[in-house]
Amino acid sequence: MSGLFGYLDGVAALGPGFDNWAMLAAQLTGEQPWQDAPTRLTAPPGLPPAERRRVGKPVRLALALGFEAVAMAGADAAELATVFTASGGDGDNLHALCTTLAEPARLVSPTRFTNSVHNAPAGYWGIAAGATAPSNVLSAYDASFSMGLIEALGQVQGEARRVLLIAYDSPYPGPLAALRPLPEPCGVALLLSPERGPASRARLAVVGGETAAEGSTGIAALDALARSAPSLRALPLLAALARGEGGRYGLEMPLGGLLVVELQPCV
């Protein structure tokens, strides 16, 4: 057994065909049909105007997800530790930088370089939320969601504080798109707390020494979407949350096998 558990106080979603958790939840329960559509990214609040214009898709995505989960939980964004997890970085910036570096003059834009770091969303989150709490940023290829979840739960337990987990994916333009096909920008956020509170919707726990299937949303198109982006591996788990059901779900691990996560609704 492991001592990795936490209470889910807030949840957020943004991606193709869903602008927020309420929309995705209605699609996961079958109340509304899911239809593929370009992700609607907005300019992130809380940043100076020049940066609002300049930041790339991952920053817009991650900040929108974070603020939605914080609002649902009625939390103070400034006090939350954060964990950002993504299978890749800012594809648009990367493509522009690699294109420039392949040219004779190699005139790299300093803004592009600064914004190319994987922790750009974490840095801008800190500025926008005024959050000086610890922030971690990680990546684990197709297992980025499960690894982000154990890092977040590790902080919930080890640091005894509320942690905002933001998982996202953003596609590549240019030649990398063929090597790593990804859908439109998408992601989910979970606000996890060490103790059950009035906002708690469910208890999430990592179960050691057990097995469980990956599970299904029950909707073929959403299962396919879950398979297409590492951050959306969470969809079967979130479908149970949307339906108010409990269960055990297997999340892809980096070196084979599944991380078994148990969801128990708080009623």
Partner: peptide, 16 residues
């Protein structure tokens, strides 16, 4: 992990 024969959790941290 593969060269050492590890099978536990594995991730990279990217905080510059």
């Amino acid at each position: 992990a593969r060269s050492l024969g590890l099978g536990g959790p594995a991730f990279v941290v990217l905080t510059a």
